[in-house]
């Protein structure tokens, strides 16, 4: 215990070093001595991260809030930009037909994708935990969708969902012929509003499940095997062991993973941008793609900033939930 108090009381250097520093009166060393105080060193070490957070997150965020209160457009000089108050928000809320579709899509997309990834992730983690042969290879293969750049793998899905040459529809057609049901064209995966939203969700699930699985696998490996043995001896079946040992064991990591996933899924951009660009007829927009559409394609930066800021309260709720949860667990 005395050990851990040492650094707090006065630097870490030995008396000899400190004496030498005083005797020579060499200033850089005095400065280094100052750095040995946790109070000072702490701030110095926080500096790079704090600079990045303030200059490139906090400041742009405040700037974005300001922009959303103006009628700024691309190419419009700031001298001609005028303050419009909450008009952008009011316009979106009351008069923009696409906006409410976007809200609905974002919630449906996030809810379905998160729920399915959660279930599949636990299932896959339990399977992976049993793997002994080809362990590395199988883990690497399963992890692939998560590590490959999203846009690049989504291009494959763009071709898989192609209206004329979809491999799903080709297989469907062969199946129909084989069953003697005649010719079927197959659905337009990205051409129908509902199917397009489901296709986009599917790709998100495909991409996100490995992350859930690997994180849950890490959680599974922290559960002591003795717990399972004890449960088995007490007569617990496979399902009960899963309910009473596995799930509580991975609960802490489950909360972290799901919160992280909700934030990322809710603010997703890439999959929708590549697969549908928000179409058909603006029916699959998420907040991010709609903000991009309005701001970068439609040049209305102020309105676009307002759209993306609508994500903020939802994300804030999720984050507050996690903070409260973590605090409660720590106690």
């Amino acid at each position: 215990m005395t050990l851990s108090k040492l650094p707090a009381t006065g630097g870490g250097e030995s008396d000899a070093v400190r004496l030498a520093g005083i005797r020579t009166g060499w200033r850089p060393q005095a400065a280094l001595g100052l750095l040995d105080r946790p109070g000072v060193l702490g701030y110095v070490l926080m500096l790079p991260a704090a600079f990045i957070i303030f200059a490139f997150i906090a400041y742009p965020f405040a700037w974005g809030v300001w922009m959303s209160l103006t009628n700024k457009e691309i190419g419009m000089p700031w001298s001609r930009v005028s303050f419009v108050g909450l008009r952008n928000y009011v316009v979106l809320w009351t008069r923009d037909g696409v906006f409410w579709d976007t809200v609905w899509n974002s919630f449906v997309y996030t809810a379905i994708a998160t729920a399915v990834k959660w279930v599949l992730g636990i299932w896959l983690a339990v399977l992976l935990n049993r793997v002994v042969r080809f362990k590395r290879l199988i883990r690497a293969a399963v992890l692939l969708p998560w590590i490959i750049p999203t846009v690049l793998s989504t291009i494959a899905f763009l071709w898989i969902f192609d209206p004329d040459f979809s491999v799903i529809n080709w297989t469907l057609r062969q199946f129909y012929v084989w069953m003697g049901w005649g010719y079927v064209k197959g659905p337009l995966w990205l051409g129908d509003p509902f199917l397009a939203l489901m296709s986009v969700t599917f790709v998100n699930i495909w991409r996100g499940t490995p992350f859930y699985a690997i994180a849950f696998l890490a959680g599974l490996q922290t559960i002591s095997p003795e717990l399972y043995e004890a449960a088995a001896i007490d007569g617990a079946g496979a399902w009960q062991r899963f309910r009473r040992v596995t799930l509580p064991g991975i609960k802490p990591i489950m909360v972290v993973v799901i919160v992280f996933s909700i934030v990322v899924t809710f603010s997703d951009f890439q999959i929708v941008y590549v697969l549908t660009r928000g179409g058909p007829a603006n029916s699959t927009h998420l907040f991010a793609t709609y903000a991009y559409q309005v701001a970068m394609v439609g040049t209305r930066l102020g309105l676009g900033a307002a759209i993306s800021l609508f994500m903020f309260p939802v994300l804030a709720l999720v984050i507050v939930f996690q903070l409260v949860y973590l605090r409660r667990e720590e106690r």
Binding site: P60, W63, V263, G304, L315
Partner: peptide
């Protein structure tokens, strides 16, 4: 406070920040 601040930056994902950040 720093710890919470760093955690809370999740609140502002790139998709929320890209319009003002391109200005900055």
């Amino acid at each position: 406070t720093f710890g919470v601040l760093i955690f809370v930056t999740y609140l502002v994902p790139p998709t929320l920040l890209f319009i003002p950040l391109s200005d900055v």
